Simulated scan of single mutants.
Amino acid sequence: MDHLLHLDRTLDELDLPRWTLPAADATHLVREVHELRRVRLGKLGPADLRVLISQEVALPYVLPLTVRLLLEQPLVEASFYEGDLLLAAVSAPASAWAMLPGLNARLRAVITALSETAVADLPRGGAQELARFVARSESLR
Rank of each mutant, 00 (worst) to 15 (best):
L69G: 05
L122C: 05
P17M: 09
P60E: 12
A109S: 12
G45A: 14
P22G: 08
H6I: 01
E32G: 00
Q55N: 10
S95R: 14
L11C: 09
E13V: 05
D25H: 12
L11F: 07
A78C: 05
E138W: 01
M99C: 00
A118Y: 00
L140D: 08
L87M: 08
A105Q: 13
L11I: 11
S91D: 14
Y61T: 04
A94P: 04
D25Y: 01
A120P: 01
A127Q: 08
R108C: 12
V33L: 14
L122H: 10
A94G: 09
P22K: 10
P64V: 04
V33Y: 05
M1V: 09
T112F: 00
L130S: 02
E77C: 11
R132H: 04
D84E: 08
E32K: 13
A96S: 13
Q73Y: 11
V51H: 03
V134L: 10
A92I: 09
I111A: 02
E77H: 02
A98R: 15
V33I: 15
R132P: 00
P101M: 10
A58E: 06
L86V: 02
A26M: 09
A89Y: 03
L122F: 09
L71E: 15
R106Y: 00
A98M: 05
H28G: 08
H3F: 07
H28S: 12
I53L: 15
L85R: 07
D121A: 15
H6D: 13
A23E: 14
L59T: 07
A127L: 01
S54C: 11
A120S: 12
H34N: 13
E32D: 13
A118W: 01
Q73S: 13
E13P: 03
L59H: 06
F80V: 12
V33D: 04
A113N: 07
L4N: 13
V39Y: 04
L69A: 07
L130Q: 04
G102M: 02
P46G: 14
V76A: 12
L122E: 09
T27A: 14
L86N: 06
T112N: 03
A58R: 06
L49H: 07
T66D: 07
V30G: 04
D15M: 01
V119L: 01
A109E: 12
T112I: 11
A47Q: 13
H34C: 10
V110K: 02
S79D: 06
D12I: 01
E13N: 05
A131M: 03
L65Q: 12
R50W: 08
